[in-house]
Computed example of a mutant assay.
Amino acid sequence: MIPLTTIKAANATLSTRLPSPVCVFLGGTTGIGFYTLKQLVASTVSPKVYYIGRTPSNAEIVQKKLEEINPKGTYIFVQCDMVLIKNVDKACEEILQKEKEINLLWLSAGLLRSGVPDTTEGLNFMAAISYFAHIKFIINLLPLLKASASNNHFSRVIRVLAGGLEKELDPNDLDMRKASFIKNRQYHTTSTTVAFDYLAKENPEISFVHTFPGFVKTEGQTFPGVVSLLIRTLMWIGGRWLLVPEEESGERNLFYATSGIYPPSKGAKEVERLFGGDAKGEGEDVALGLDGVEGSGCYTLHWDGSAKSGNKVLLGYRETGFRETFWEHTLAVYKGIEEKYQKDAGEA
Rank of each mutant, 00 (worst) to 15 (best):
K65Y: 00
K178Q: 06
D175S: 15
S108Q: 09
F125R: 00
E93S: 14
K217C: 12
A257H: 15
G276W: 03
G110L: 11
N87W: 05
K183L: 12
A147E: 10
A12W: 02
G53I: 08
F77V: 04
T30A: 09
T119M: 11
L165D: 12
S155I: 00
E205Y: 08
G292R: 02
D173H: 03
M176R: 01
G346T: 13
L314H: 13
A200T: 04
R318L: 09
F125N: 06
D278H: 10
G267F: 05
L230H: 12
E251C: 05
L243Y: 02
G297I: 07
P117I: 09
K90S: 15
G281T: 12
L254R: 09
E294M: 07
K217W: 08
G28K: 01
S306T: 15
T120V: 05
P224L: 15
I7D: 00
K86W: 01
L96C: 11
N58D: 09
V293D: 03
I69W: 00
Y299P: 02
D81W: 08
A179T: 14
P143S: 02
S306A: 11
I261G: 06
G305N: 13
N87T: 12
A127W: 07
S180N: 10
I206M: 06
I231G: 00
P19F: 11
V227K: 01
L14V: 02
G110T: 05
Y262D: 01
M235T: 12
A332G: 06
W241K: 12
I129C: 07
D197K: 06
S155E: 01
G305V: 10
F255Y: 13
F212W: 07
P213E: 04
R159H: 09
I129Y: 02
A149Q: 03
P264S: 08
P3Q: 13
A332K: 09
H134R: 13
E347T: 14
V286T: 14
A257K: 08
F125I: 08
E101H: 12
Y50G: 03
Y187R: 05
Y35Q: 00
I206F: 08
L331E: 13
N253I: 11
G53H: 11
D81T: 13
T193W: 04
E168Y: 11
E339F: 03
Q97E: 15
L229D: 03
Y256A: 11
K98I: 11
R17A: 15
F34R: 09
P171A: 03
H188G: 01
T193C: 05
V62C: 10
V83F: 03
I85D: 06
P47L: 11
K65C: 14
A200E: 00
N152M: 08
I182Y: 13
G27A: 11
Y334R: 00
T300D: 10
T29W: 02
I76E: 09
Y262E: 04
F322Q: 05
L66A: 04
D278W: 11
S108W: 06
L315A: 09
I158N: 08
E99V: 10
N253C: 04
V226W: 15
A12V: 07
V271M: 09
V286W: 04
P204D: 01
S15N: 14
I95K: 09
A287Q: 13
E272M: 10
K90Q: 15
A257T: 15
L234I: 10
G281L: 11
W241M: 02
N87I: 08
Q186Y: 13
L66G: 05
L274F: 13
A287I: 05
P19D: 12
L229W: 06
L331Y: 02
F196R: 00
T330Q: 06
